[in-house]
């Protein structure tokens, strides 16, 4: 099980292996709320606390929207570990979220 190996290997150098995630949402719209909730459930289940999640409201940070090249919202950026991925949608498709995060 490669994933098992990865998970067991991770705690050894915790700081470096932390997932760096950035989620862009639009305020408290239903789809954004859904995305945040869905994502948190998945992350808790698969990564425990081994992640850093930053939630950004696109209305508040238009410059960052441009810099991060955001189009569709909600959008989750997996900045670390590589490869860089973008997860679009309300995170309701668990399989795809896991695949996108490289957890499956």
């Amino acid at each position: 099980m490669t994933e098992g190996d990865l998970l067991t290997a991770m705690p050894e150098n915790e700081d470096e292996q932390k997932y760096v995630l950035r989620l862009f949402v639009t305020g408290a719209s239903p789809v954004s709320v859904r995305a945040i909730n869905n994502l948190k459930v998945i992350l808790e289940k698969h990564l425990n606390d081994n992640y850093e999640l930053e939630i950004i409201d696109v209305h508040q940070q238009p410059l960052m929207v441009k810099d991060e090249d955001i189009t569709a919202v909600p959008m989750l950026l997996k900045k670390f570990p590589l490869p860089f991925r973008r997860l679009v949608g309300d995170m309701s498709d668990y399989e795809k979220v896991l695949r996108g995060l490289g957890l499956k």
């Binding site: 859904r34 995305a35 869905n38």
Partner: peptide, 13 residues
Amino acid sequence: EIEETGEYNLDGL
């Protein structure tokens, strides 16, 4: 690099 995981809109754009 995109994975579509559900409903979304183009608010970013």
